[in-house]
Amino acid sequence: MSGRLHRPQRWAWFLERPGYLLFMARELTGFFVAGYLVVLLVTLGRLGGGETAFAEWLQTLSTPGWTVAHAVALAASVWHSVTWFAAVPQAMPIQLGEKRLPAPLAAVVMGYGPWLTVTTIIVWGVLR
């Protein structure tokens, strides 16, 4: 009598379903968001360090390697944001009477809408 069979989870469980891979991709893009924040903090630090230090840092950032890194980080951040906006209607549903605001609309109202608005304001502020 060997009894109940227990089947332990594989360490590479995330390879078993496409949904798991997407989940891992979403979580990993978090590192890029964090990395970009570090760059931003360093930039602020250099700004405090004087005009020369800041100019040198900007010079460094304009090298092709950094440009590529920025592009990758931007793509990852955008993807991360998109997954967040996709989750918003599930995590914070808006109920109107008996109906729920449809998910795409809720994503616009609570995600893409505010995002675009804030971005527009910043862009306007910078380009003014």
């Binding site: 379903r17 949904g19 798991y20 989940f23 979580e27 989750a87 209607p89 599930q90 995590a91 549903p93």
Partner: peptide
């Protein structure tokens, strides 16, 4: 829960447990 979301994907009754 880390919000993998597959529970909702497989739910045959559209309960949306992840949400």
């Amino acid at each position: 829960c880390t919000f993998v979301g597959e529970c909702t994907a497989v739910c045959p009754k559209h309960v949306d447990p992840a949400g």
